[in-house]
Amino acid sequence: MTARRETLLLFAPGLALLALGFLLPILRMLMLSVVGPDGITAVHFARFFQDSYYPSILWRTVRLSLIITVLTAAIGFPLAYIMSRVGLRLRLWLVVMVILPLMTSVVVRTFGWMVLLGRSGPIASTLRDHGLVGRGFSLMHTETAIVLGMVQVLLPFMVLTLLGSLARLDPRLEEAARTMGCSFLQSFRHVVLPLSLPGLVAGSLLVFTLSASSFVTPSLLGGARIEVLAASIYKSVTQTLDWNFAAAQAVILFAGVALVLIPYLRLTARHG
């Protein structure tokens, strides 16, 4: 057998899975979003934009995803940097610690946050004891709650992606920078950051898309009033059984995410 045929053979299972599990449903969704009772129609999209309700949900989804991405990057970068610089043994333990939360269900973790953030939870009661907030204070059902929960859920993805590129960075480059007059922070800014940019971009893309499409954590922590688009799609499918409108919303979410990501990719391609 030639190398070319072997390659094709190895490629086939993945390709088949991708076609069946991704391309087909996407095509089906695109079709659903534009068909109505009388053939091709744009009525589902028109409905989305007819008042500010759905656009505001879209905007919230994109805005929260951006905040979540920035926060996971800000928290994850120093963590991944330290992990890449410690000994292999300690690194393994840190990786286990970062991955450990992924081994429990996201629902369980979100319930944990509900306990922490609720009116009688430790955060609210501590703030209340110090007289910093009023009697009715609760972080539950706020955007802050969504961000907190999502950052915790998505941090492992950011850290592990960053670790991949930081671990490949030659520590002598930083030493060289120090001997050329850089302080620690300057060597970080001029050497570590630009050279780990691919990892940062990959991690950000992962976190952004995952948080834009997640709905369990946002709906549990944000409640019914603070809706994100994925939750709205879920509602259309399960409660109003309006598959066409659900498909239209999904297409709009897809386009919204793409609108944010494409300029970002362009920007980093120029710097890379």
């Binding site: 030659d170 002598r172 480059l173 030493e175 060289a176 920078a177 001997t179 050329m180 001029h190 050497v191 630009p194 050279l195």
Partner: peptide
Amino acid sequence: IAMMFQSYALLPH
């Protein structure tokens, strides 16, 4: 001081 490394440690970017 200035130091030259065995691996040169040039900044690749």
